[in-house]
Write a protein that binds this DNA or RNA. Structure first.
Lengths: 188, 188
DNA sequence: ACCAGCGATTGCAGTCTCTGAAATCACCGT
DNA sequence: ACGGTGATTTCAGAGACTGCAATCGCTGGT
């Protein structure tokens, strides 16, 4: 390790969340985030591609994990079941960060630029899953369509989990959402 | 009308497409687009919210049209049928612009920023349709899920239409995609 | 102990996107 | 003729982001 205090990336993320909450996303300069984290603006850009990206830590890792889990699922498992299992596998991590997720969501919802980035990430997740399904031998258009509904169900589950006053586990909301997906699909 | 030549917006769009094709999106300055259109940079920003938006003319109008068409569809029509009908209604407009659509697609695919904007527009379309379905009395989660698959099917149809060497009409690709959607949904 | 390599951080200069405010211009109806 | 109107322009500036070179001090080899 170097001589600098470790965890620069994490410090930048925390500083960003604080400032975005205090003053809003637009009124916060990148230089301010860096200063609060004890770093410089230039260093911020060494860690994040742009100002928005600081609010999506580990998102690419998450997408890659889901993709790999879907690819590695048992061959006899139905596509939607494999995807549900993949989502469920990592759901504890989120349960331990409910409050942070809510803070983050409030910031995201308040600004169009950030929603745009989130939508892009969501779309990337869908494409990743579609890729994984193709690797499993599911061919288009089923791969694309299945990935799309799965992501929609995941979004739904995440929204309910975040708003749930009873603090139910994410995996339970996922189970419910996928269950409702099956019911809804029967009407199509 | 004013003393200025009409169609400033269209001229800016054409100039942008030309320059993006010649030099690429990143290497083209907004000021250059404006100059080629016989205008100034500031005027560009009077017409478009940002540099990307020049590649999405009328997209918001399209989304609004689809939403209204879905709301206005016969009450006895199934949600997916209403959406398919809405897409089909405006499909001629696209058929008359195949080549422009392909040029545009090549630019979009070449740059991440632009794909991000496109994904945001697609997501907005989905949310608009979900809203329309709720107006029709379809309640969540069915509204959200149905809108999501419909948009996915639309994307699929558009992609095939654009790549179709036989120049088939968009409405036919839409019909096929929604047909396949029904078949796929049965396996869920 | 000395030194070269290395990774993280920094300073700086510069480009480009995007915005706000005020001015200009010619057409319009009165 | 005259003010209203709407599109365009000018100007000045903030702020996001990048390229490049320099710095710092830890690490391992000698």
């Amino acid at each position: 390790m170097g001589r600098w205090p470790a965890g620069a990336q994490e410090r930048l993320q925390e500083a960003a969340i604080e400032l975005f909450t205090e003053r809003g996303y637009e009124r916060t300069r990148v230089a301010e985030i860096a200063t609060r984290a004890g770093l410089t603006e230039r260093t911020f850009y060494n860690h994040f591609a742009d100002k928005r990206e600081v609010l999506f830590p580990g998102q690419d890792r998450f997408i890659a994990d889901i993709r790999e889990a879907v690819v590695a699922a048992p061959a006899e498992q139905a596509p939607l079941d494999a995807i549900l299992a993949a989502f469920t596998a990592g759901s504890d991590w989120f349960d331990q960060r409910r409050e942070a997720a809510q803070r983050r969501r409030r910031i995201l919802d308040a600004h169009g630029d950030l929603r745009e980035r989130e939508r892009a990430k969501t779309a990337a997740l869908g494409e990743g899953i579609a890729d994984a399904l193709r690797t499993r031998g599911v061919c288009d258009p089923a791969a694309t369509l299945t990935a799309a509904v799965a992501v929609a169900a995941h979004q739904l589950a995440a929204a309910r989990w975040s708003a749930d006053p009873r603090h139910g586990a994410l995996k339970d909301h996922l189970r419910d959402s996928f269950e409702e997906l099956h019911r809804t699909a029967r009407t199509w």
